[in-house]
Design a protein around this nucleic acid. Structure first.
Lengths: 205, 205
DNA sequence: TATCTAAGCTACGGCACCGTATCGTAGCTA
DNA sequence: TAGCTACGATACGGTGCCGTAGCTTAGATA
């Protein structure tokens, strides 16, 4: 009821400054919003609740963001994950590594729990839809990088449509995670990658 | 302000019976709920709005369903679509037809607009999750039927995992519809099916 | 020490929603 | 005609939310 937080993040116990700096306040608000987002989805992020969790006064939050939506955008932006692009030297190795990383994120990442609510919002709000498209493209850019390298090595057909390759691999993973709700084990992921490789390498030649 | 509706569906203008039968009232409520669901997603279905749209008094709605959630379940159940299983005589023909039908539904079906909100709800409510799994399995049962026939004809490896085949085809379609937000043209759909066939037929032999 | 910036608190008006209570009444059936 | 069933209208209590107002005060800076 009295001891307030210390810096970005949870309400800690240090009796430090009862008043936080502008930056600390913004960070704490965003952290709480992020937390709520992953826990309850977009609709679970209310300004009142962010204020409660962060220990930042609601009025203060409104001094930093003009509306709930603005805060939400900032929070989503902040943690939009980007898959890091592996470089194993072979197309098969790269794709397998990337796919396994993606599967990992899908299963354990807190982001994957917030995703459906964003997709849902995008369904009826064009601004969100554009934002989501952009963010998503960024997240999946690893596929493009990998394909480009493979093409440079002559390992992959020059005129292959990267977006098809991406859909062929990410699609089945996403499908299992959110639609059929089956397990995403390593065998499945490797199978998906092999399927994509069979097509791209042998069937075109 | 005064003239009420006629039967199941929209508030029509005929000054017909101001009081509808028990059945008509239930049908009208469900129809309105369905409409709101496809238009605004799960969270857009409020009892007040259902009452407004259907012309059924809120009190009456509560006489038929104990809670908003119960009404929602009924409404979702009612229209959960089931892809009809084609029978063209060949595996390629069947899968292509099924996939094209699915793509069609994804792009034009009102159901596809409600889906993300259900997935989102399933993310944090196990009851919804189970419901969704079941419904989804039913919707995708066509793949199993097709595969079984192909296996009986010896066109398909007996030990193929149908769920992998389903994921390989439905996955990329869903992915494009909701995640990458790209167009789902016929060429893409056919490509996805070919990819699946290449694997299942040649690579195993 | 004086000043100024920005955080904190309490409270509010407005709205949408859930679920219930109360009363009135249409229309069927005995 | 009497009575029963189920719908309709209004209203309410309670909650959660958005965004704002008014005021206080900590802490950095000049």
């Amino acid at each position: 009821m009295s001891t307030k937080s210390r810096s970005a993040g949870e309400p800690a116990e240090g009796p430090e400054p009862l008043r936080r700096s502008k930056e600390a306040v913004k960070a704490a608000s965003l952290a709480a919003a992020y937390e709520l987002l992953t826990e309850f989805g977009l609709s679970g992020v209310s300004v009142d609740e962010v204020a409660r969790r962060s220990g930042v006064a609601k009025t203060t939050i409104y001094r930093h963001w003009p509306s709930r939506t603005a805060l939400l955008f900032d929070a989503v932006m902040q943690f939009a994950p980007r898959l890091q692009t592996p470089n194993t030297g072979s197309l098969r190795g790269d794709l397998t590594s990337l796919a396994l990383g993606l599967a990992q994120r899908l299963q354990t990442g807190r982001w994957s729990s917030a995703m459906p609510s964003i997709v849902d919002a995008a369904e009826r709000d064009t601004e969100v839809a554009e934002f989501q498209s952009r963010t998503h493209a960024g997240m999946m850019s690893g596929f493009g990088a990998i394909a480009a390298r493979a093409q440079a090595r002559g390992e992959l057909d020059q005129k292959l449509d990267v977006s098809e390759l991406t859909a062929a691999i990410a699609g089945p993973l996403f499908y299992r995670r959110w639609f059929s709700r089956q397990e995403l084990d390593e065998a499945f992921v490797r199978g998906v990658v092999e399927r994509a490789l069979v097509w791209d390498c042998s069937s075109h030649g």
